[in-house]
Computed example of a mutant assay.
Amino acid sequence: MSSAGHILDMIKRLGQNRSLRASNRLKFKGDNRETIYSGTDKHNKAIFKEFPKEQVEQAVNQIKQDSKVKRRKELTFLISIISVTSILMIYWIISSTDYSKKPQVKDIVLSPPKIWSGKQSDPLKVPFSNYFYSPFTVNMEFEVQIDKSYTMYDNDMVVDNTINILFFDNECNFIGKLLPKNGYISWMFVGPTKEGLGPKKVLYSLSEMDTNNDGFINENDRPNLYMSELNGKNLTRITELGLSSIQWVGKGNEIQIKFNHAKESNDSLYGIFNTETKEIKFTNTPFQSE
């Protein structure tokens, strides 16, 4: 082959190589899709359908909304489970706590029991005094008359569902109520009962607040230990802690309280309350008489 032939052959090859460049190749768009199915019947060809933008946005928003509803249902279910579990735990704690249990009263001298008619017109004598009192019950609040008699003891001077105490003087004139607003009184007694000890005071286990939030003030609410004069005046809270025993010590002007949260005898907690100064001191050792 001559030199001229070689030159023409090189020019021809350069032209072929130029046609094979990537920039000159057909791209997969537009009419190029038709070449894929060039040997396929028109009825069997794939159809590339475009959806309106509004329809696509509507579908996406619906998916998002469905997802939110699903998450909301799952959250509601979880909250319901937690609420039910919490209610069951609270009920178990309340049911396992006997707030109405009366603490042991040491060195108490009991008089014979009395029979009370349950009527305010027939008040009871306050021990060691010239005053009288009458338990005020739920039935009295709603003016429901019940023909019933009660057996009363010196160490438990109230009846079931007592919500207040009415006090009267020696001529049975009304002095006043123990509480300005009704609560729940699970027990009441006067001490010290031994001769020569005093001054005499009235002690109460009294619930003033709805501590378990059930809408009522009753025996299921946390009680506090209170003290008043024999006529119901000067009501004073002594402590809010649970008690296992109460004992007048010293000259009868102090009350030793043993708290029931101590589970071991060597881990006991006592409170010494002075009925005159109305102060309480805590100690791990019981009162030692002189």
Rank of each mutant, 00 (worst) to 15 (best):
M89I: 15
G39S: 13
G176M: 08
T283P: 07
Y204P: 09
N234H: 13
S38Y: 08
Q55F: 13
G250N: 08
V190M: 01
G183P: 10
G271L: 02
T151K: 08
P192L: 06
S205F: 08
K114T: 11
V69T: 12
V126N: 00
S205V: 08
G215Y: 09
M1I: 04
T97N: 13
E219V: 08
F216H: 07
M1K: 03
T211N: 06
Q247S: 15
S129C: 04
A22R: 11
K64Y: 11
R72V: 05
F216W: 08
M188Q: 07
E34V: 11
N212T: 11
P112Y: 10
K70N: 12
Q288I: 15
N218T: 06
K73Q: 12
R13V: 12
H6D: 13
S111E: 10
I163Y: 07
H6M: 12
K200H: 15
H261L: 15
L241N: 10
L75Q: 15
I163P: 06
A22M: 10
F48W: 11
K70V: 07
Q288T: 14
F273P: 00
K29W: 12
E143W: 01
F282P: 04
K281Q: 12
G232A: 03
Y37P: 07
L241F: 10
T275K: 02
P112W: 08
N155H: 07
V105F: 03
K201H: 11
T275G: 02
E276S: 09
V138D: 06
V84Q: 12
S129W: 03
K263Q: 14
I272P: 06
N220H: 14
K42T: 10
Y150D: 00
T35G: 03
Q288F: 09
E290D: 11
N32P: 02
R21V: 05
V202S: 02
V105Y: 01
K201W: 04
A59I: 14
E276A: 05
N170H: 06
E57L: 14
I90L: 15
F216G: 01
K194C: 07
G232K: 02
K42P: 05
I7H: 06
S186R: 04
N173S: 02
K125H: 11
N212W: 08
Y184V: 04
N130C: 01
S111V: 03
N274A: 06
S289R: 09
E208M: 15
G15P: 04
F132W: 04
H43K: 15
S129L: 03
